[in-house]
Amino acid sequence: MRPTDILKITPQGLYCAPGDFHIDPVRPVSRALITHGHSDHARSGHEAVLATAETLRIMAVRYGEGFCGSAQAARLGEPIRLGDARVTFRPAGHVLGSAQILIEAGGQRIVASGDYKRARDPTCLPFEPIACDVFITEATFGLPVFRHPDMKGEVRKLLDSLALFPDRTHIVGAYALGKAQRLMALLREAGYDRPIHVHGAMERLTEFYQSEGIPLGDIRKVVAAERGRLGGEIVICPPSAIQDLWARRFPDPVTSFASGWMRVRARARQKGVELPLIVSDHSDWDDLCATIRETGAGEIWVTHGEEDALVHWCRTIGLEARPLHMIGYGDEGEESEAADPGATSAETAP
């Protein structure tokens, strides 16, 4: 069987015919395999869902217990038979519970990696390279200008600014699932031990992380009436809130945003960010390239992001590569809880 006979692109998303399931479908389907809990990958309304236990719990936190007909937890590294296919979940290093899915069918090994990163993250398991014939990768930061710096330095930037402006509230926009908690954990590692204040929209997911045994220290929800007293403190909120009236009620706020997009000046300026922090939960260019080589795959499929550059690079090193032009995935944009799904593509368009 050719890989294209095993996995096809449908309006619902990637479909595996031998196993009769979809991966991260964007519309309701009868059986969905979900790589991780970000809302462009994990949607509610499917009949049967197979995902890691953490991802299932994240979906329950976000959508309520009845987010699907029936849920099955996939144990990492344990193969599961579905029709004529065998699937195995392995860590992707993206957010808590995130996994790559290895599909074995018709003599082919295909890995759908979802979103992944190679940089260290104290809040989730590290990515494990899987040897395969076809590697399906995202390319959110698929241009050689995206090279994420050491996170310690970025956290240091934030702490230095607090030292220089001890009366100003430092408001950091960060995606509610994963980025926010990773930032908290990194601040704790850097020795920051003051309470970290969070926007109401982050409270549930942050509590969830803590209940999963990830220590984040003293986290407090911002009470509207007390905003004026939070000078010199760190407040983490969804990216959409940093330019809101909500953010202006803090004393002389410094507007910060933790995202891989902050690498490009025009993008940071466009968002009115004063203290850009380059912290990403996606692979940068060097890691995308290194990972593709490590898998040993001869064929690379690129789902979304800056496909052209990555496809070009694969071809220059003799790999077969094709862009899938998948619609409905545009990471990071989706994570502002209140944002409508239509805003997703606008958020990530260059």
């Binding site: 050689p144 200008v145 025009a266 070009h312």
Partner: peptide
């Protein structure tokens, strides 16, 4: 030091020569 196609795509995206070179 770089592939011309990758440089072109990057320059297009960033829009500034110095910044593109600095990042790439």
């Amino acid at each position: 030091r770089t592939d011309p196609v990758l440089f072109g795509l990057s320059y297009d995206y960033v829009g500034d020569l110095s910044e593109t070179v600095a990042l790439m």
